[in-house]
């Protein structure tokens, strides 16, 4: 955790689908004192839910693993990292294309990255095959 943030927190939890709601609610309550609008709050919750779900179903493919979320706040900027040590992404550019999914049989829509990109102010992905994936996101809460 970086000390030069105004405020920061880290959480870790097992890759249980049950924890998708916990993760987005934890992040939402941590940023609540920045006084985001209902829409800003919903955007952040949705983006966190997308990234955490991806770690659970794609990164770990429902095997047990650890998902980590780091949140840092500077002024009214929220920086979020969602980290897994799962199987990694082979072609990140392709994965980010709208409607691209490797799990259509689970009724995935392939819209996760598109939603993260459009709901947040910044998003980028780093991934190494066999080592895991980190999604970085940034949201500026308006005054």
């Amino acid at each position: 955790m970086q000390i030069n943030y105004d405020n920061a927190m880290t959480i870790e939890f097992l890759s249980n689908p049950n924890n998708e709601a916990f993760a987005r609610i934890a992040v939402a309550s941590f940023i609540a004192n920045l006084d985001p609008t209902v829409e800003e709050m919903s955007d952040v919750k949705t983006a966190v839910s997308e990234a955490v779900t991806n770690s659970i179903i794609h990164g770990y493919e429902n095997e047990k693993g650890i998902v980590k979320i780091k949140v840092g706040i500077i002024n009214k900027t929220v920086e979020i990292e969602v980290i897994d040590r799962g199987k990694g992404i082979e072609d990140i550019e392709k994965a980010k294309e709208p409607l691209y999914t490797t799990k259509p049989e689970l009724e995935r829509s392939g819209m996760g990255f598109t939603i993260m990109e459009s709901f947040m102010d910044e998003m980028h992905v780093e991934s190494i095959i066999g080592k895991g994936t980190t999604v970085f996101m940034k949201k500026i809460i308006k005054d």
Binding site: R24, S42, K45, T46, S49, E50, T53, L106, E107, R108, S109, M111, G112, I115
Partner: peptide, 13 residues
Amino acid sequence: SFMDSAGIGMILG
């Protein structure tokens, strides 16, 4: 009160 992209697949299915 909340829906993410899982809702898209659920509705379409």
